[in-house]
Every structure is written in structure tokens, then in C-alpha cells.
């Protein structure tokens, strides 16, 4: 299915947010996630089923002022 990952359209077979993170190599990474504008805690990614056209954000710490 097609989803929007960090603003870019991508095709994925991941059924959950956890599977998506794992497929991107983020399973053990310092990242936080949101789906369709709502925060999804790392412990709940396995319960977050993905649907076509979902908008997923995966963010990490970065320099800031």
C-alpha cells in the first residue's frame, strides 16, 4: 500500500507502525512517531495498524534553538 512517510509517498508492506520502523532499520533507533497527526508511543507501535494514505512521521533529535 501507499502511505505518506515524512511527507513523501512510499510503498510498504508493513501492517503496523512497528513493522514499518523495523523495515527502515529504526527498531533500536532513537526515534519518535506520529500517525495522522497523533503521537504513537514506541510501546504502542505494534498496535498501530497502518492503512493506505496514512501520514506517518518518524522524527529524531536534532539541533535546535
Amino acid at each position: 500500500m501507499q502511505i505518506l512517510l515524512n511527507g513523501e509517498p512510499v510503498a510498504t508492506d508493513a501492517r503496523t507502525l512497528q513493522e514499518l520502523c523495523a523495515s527502515l532499520g529504526f527498531a533500536e533507533s532513537k526515534v519518535a512517531t506520529a500517525v495522522n497527526g497523533s503521537f504513537v508511543a514506541s510501546a504502542k507501535r505494534g498496535l498501530a495498524a497502518l492503512s493506505p494514505k496514512d501520514e506517518v512521521e518518524i522524527v529524531a533529535p536534532r539541533q535546535g534553538g
Binding site: G7, S29, A32, I58, V59, A60, P61, R62, G65
Partner: peptide, 13 residues
């Protein structure tokens, strides 16, 4: 610090 989109390739965060 801030949060920014993380790329699977660059992994800058």
C-alpha cells in the same frame, strides 16, 4: 534541541 524527520539513509539524529 529539536525534533526533525529522520531519514533511514542519513540517520542524522
Amino acid at each position: 534541541a529539536s525534533l526533525r524527520r529522520e531519514s533511514a539513509r542519513a540517520r542524522a539524529g
